[in-house]
Amino acid sequence: MKWNVNNKMMNNINKNRQNKDLEEDAAALRTEEKLDEMLANDIPVNDSDELMAAINRYEEGSNLETPAEREVSVIEAKTTVYGNIECEGDLHVKGVINGDLAVSGKVMSGGKTNGTIEAESVVLHDAKHEGDIRCAKEITLGSEVSVVVGNITAQSVNLLGKVKGNVSVNERCHIGAQAVVIGDICAKVIEVEAGAVIKGHLDITQDAAVE
């Protein structure tokens, strides 16, 4: 398959899924139903399915003209954009973008981006991003290699990579074992795996009952 990067992505996602399973077991042992629920909700299974679907769409389109290709914008690995991108739909980045992104759908990046990202959801995998990220839904920093230098604002955040900047989350903030966060974290619910490095203030304000 020519989509090696994506294969790697898939493997990592699968790995994450396995880790999640283990986590779930551990959580079940703790008999905290709430935690169980939350873990179950956050497994990025959809991501991999969507990714696969997207990949399939491209692979079918060896003929340049398939209409499906027109729905998702792709900045390939050897492409550089110096400027801002406004996009209705999804944007996949494997190359380099120096500019702000305003995307109504999902941004999936395995490349280098420099600027502000505004999107419904963002998945960074082996990606480097400098600048703020604002998300209506979820941000996933899906590998230890992913780096964000800038502030992150989102509904929920799943950090497995490195962040230098403040993280503010409306709902749930999950920080993986390999994650590094240098900056303040503000969230309603936080979950930190053993091994994570956090340097900064935590502000976990939960209006609802703690139990």
Binding site: E69, R70, S73, I85, C87, L91
Partner: peptide, 14 residues
């Protein structure tokens, strides 16, 4: 293939 989809707008160099 780098694809700029129908509803995507880029202001800047490529």
């Amino acid at each position: 293939k780098t694809i700029i989809a129908r509803k995507c707008k880029i202001v800047g160099e490529i």
